[in-house]
Design a protein around this nucleic acid. Structure first.
Lengths: 100, 100
DNA sequence: AAAACATATCTATTTTTTTAGATATATAAA
DNA sequence: TTTATATATCTAAAAAAATAGATATGTTTT
């Protein structure tokens, strides 16, 4: 849980937005084709559509978010679903509160 | 209080350290020559010494921190003292907790 | 097995950030 | 009122991040 590394990820509006959107997937994304829940998060394509950025950029963003454990990927067939890692998000905020 | 802009400032180890050091100036810095307290914070020179970076870099850092209101400058003669802005720091952590 | 689809990775370009030296400004001291 | 000191700003170079197109990989469908 590195404050500086996580802050780097959060120093970009799109990446912060992705985290916010993933708080309420049903409100922010259409339903998936293969499953009728968002338990494992949202597929990359939907996130890409919402950002308006290129596929490779969004994939890179999600990878950087995963590298600091802010999100968790799950493969479902040909799709990769990303969901928030609430423990790490909470740990980060708590660390800021005590250390900062 | 812009989460992304403040996160940018916190995405650098030295700037985070400066904020931490300013939490306990008496523990982290020598006493000032003109005054015997740290009520207005710590002068730029002492902060520079502690970072090991150049004068202009540290001045730029402190300016960026001031731009997002993380610190408050006070002029004392030929010195500028910087102290933490606790309200904004708290507001930032609270915003992360609710918005993120 | 080939074609289609979703995502990841590679490569290159543009933009932003980092960093410090040089210079300017403001104050204090001689 | 010149000189010294502290800090800020300007300028430029190097490093890192953003971004997308092209390509690769893995999975499903035909």
């Amino acid at each position: 849980m590195d404050i500086v590394e996580i802050s780097k990820v959060l120093s970009n509006k799109t990446r912060v937005n992705i985290l916010k959107w993933l708080k309420a997937p049903a409100l922010n994304f259409p339903p998936h084709q293969d499953i009728d829940h968002f338990d494992d998060g949202v597929c990359v394509g939907y996130i890409q559509d919402k950002t308006g950025l290129s596929q490779s950029t969004v994939s890179t963003y999600l990878n950087s978010m995963q590298n600091v454990d802010l999100v968790i990927p799950t493969r479902h067939g040909k799709w990769t679903y990303y969901r928030r890692n609430e423990e790490v998000i909470k740990a980060y905020v708590d660390a800021l509160k005590t250390e900062l």
